[in-house]
């Protein structure tokens, strides 16, 4: 589905990673493991076109990404370090105004909130939530629309054990519907996934 071939990325004259190749198949998980500054976030942003690649080829469904950019982006869901949540919005409004809800309705928002145990907090302002609850709110966005590929930067960060189990179960549920995950972490997670170690520029 997503194929990365000999991908290199450079930022401010520093090589972030070099000659990286891997493939993400339908309904599978791929985990990018690396220490701080190893280029995990840059890799995700490079795939999405948010930062330019130095060289290499990215293909989506056997076509170069440059030819299918819009189609690819509409098939993807990205969650970075910043959770794209507004402190002044309520929990409900944050989902309502999320960019990906063209096809979402109130019912879908409510069921997503129930799934991440935030339904009772729906009228609360996001600034009143803890970091873990904000993370859950961001996870609720995954459920608003089904996407073919989820690119998630450190999905388990700031979560307690219960939260980690919740994320794992949501990933499994989406996997069963044919959704694929490409996510980053510092250490290996318990999710059934193909692990790629990103270190020393490669």
């Amino acid at each position: 589905m997503l194929k990365i071939e000999n991908l290199s990325c450079q930022r401010s004259n520093d090589l972030v990673f070099n000659d990286l190749s891997f493939e993400v198949s339908k309904g599978t998980n791929t985990e990018i493991i690396g220490s701080n500054g190893s280029g995990k976030t840059s890799l995700l942003k490079c795939i999405l076109g948010l930062i330019e690649k130095k060289q290499g080829k990215i293909s989506w469904k056997q076509k170069p990404i440059e030819e299918t950019r819009t189609f690819f982006l509409k098939s993807c869901f990205y969650q970075g370090h910043q959770l794209a949540l507004k402190n002044n919005f309520t929990v409900f409004e944050n989902l309502k105004f999320s960019h990906s809800i063209f096809n979402s309705n109130e019912k879908k928002i409510m069921s997503s909130l129930k799934e991440v145990d935030l339904f009772e907090y729906r009228e609360r302002t996001s600034s009143d939530l803890s970091m873990g609850q904000l993370k859950r709110l961001a996870i609720a966005k995954w459920l608003l629309d089904e996407h073919e590929l989820y690119l998630i930067d450190e999905p388990f960060a700031s979560l307690d054990q219960e939260g980690i189990l919740l994320v794992s179960s949501i990933i499994k549920k989406l996997n069963s519907k044919g959704c694929s995950f490409l996510f980053t972490s510092h250490t290996s997670s318990n999710i059934d996934s193909r692990e790629i170690l990103l270190d020393n520029y490669s």
Partner: peptide, 14 residues
């Protein structure tokens, strides 16, 4: 830009 919403806008495909 600071809270990551701009990322979401730019990759929305719109």
């Amino acid at each position: 830009y600071r809270d990551g919403t701009l990322d979401q806008f730019l990759i929305s495909g719109e």
